[in-house]
């Protein structure tokens, strides 16, 4: 029931307030959906790239070298890439997603890698003794070992992803919720702006409440003996 209310809240809100503000309901869903899809696709790409890379770099001396490198890249302002990406891909989903991957991959990579690097040595020894090698080791040992790192990295990454996509859409990588807010701002339409901001807030709240907070809680249980 609580879950249902949480899911329904942003939808109900959007239906009611689009009536009052005179904005087309479909438009809000379409713009919010566009931004969400961009973040989602970029997240999937980031994770798919980060996990094998982290597993590869997780071993031995290369990991010692790359961990601080990713920490720096994590704080690199990816907006610096946006003008170049617009020339390469034009304004649209491709540029947006590429830009988002460049933003989101680093926290995921850094976090997964550090959870592997800082893992308990005795667990590694136990895995070795009981014969964990190759693919089996990867799926039954390394992957579960890195899950808490993946979850924290995902929360940071997706947070940065939303920050970045709304910013990019306001600058002009339209459509999307950023574009929606920007055009309302250009018209000086404060009620619609307020409505849009709250819609986004509710939407993000729902995602966190339903997905990330439970996962984070699980991963704490899961990482500690």
């Amino acid at each position: 029931m609580v879950a249902f209310i949480t899911v329904a809240a942003p939808f109900i809100y959007i239906f009611i307030f689009s009536e009052f503000t005179g904005v087309k309901t479909e438009q809000v869903f379409l713009d919010l959906g566009t931004s969400f899809m961009r973040v989602l696709v970029a997240y999937v790409i980031s994770v798919a790239a980060a996990i094998p890379l982290a597993f590869f770099l997780g071993q031995g001396k290369i990991g010692d070298f790359f961990l601080p490198v990713f920490d720096v890249l994590q704080s690199f302002p990816s907006f610096a890439l946006l003008p170049l990406l617009v020339i390469w891909f034009g304004i649209g989903n491709a540029a947006a997603i590429f830009f988002l991957v460049a933003t989101m991959i680093w926290p995921v990579l850094f976090s997964v890698l550090s959870s592997l690097r800082l893992s308990r040595k005795d667990l590694e020894e136990a895995a070795f003794i009981f014969g964990a090698r190759g693919w089996k080791k990867m799926f039954l040992f390394t992957l579960p070992l890195s899950l808490p790192g993946l979850i924290t990295g995902s929360i940071v990454g997706i947070g940065e992803g939303w920050e970045a996509i709304v910013g990019a859409e306001i600058i002009g990588i339209t459509p999307g919720i950023g574009g929606f807010l920007n055009s309302a701002s250009n018209r000086g339409d404060i009620p619609v702006l307020t409505f849009g901001i709250i819609a986004l807030l509710l939407f993000l709240f729902t995602l966190n409440k339903l997905i990330w907070i439970p996962l984070l809680k699980r991963s704490h249980d899961y990482a500690h003996e």
């Binding site: 020894e125 136990a126 003794i129 009981f130 090698r133 040992f141 579960p144 899961y222 003996e225």
Partner: peptide, 18 residues
Amino acid sequence: KNNELAMIFQSFAIFPWL
């Protein structure tokens, strides 16, 4: 190798996710 040797650890070293 893996099918003949086993070990018991001071820190238990059991896998927390299992």
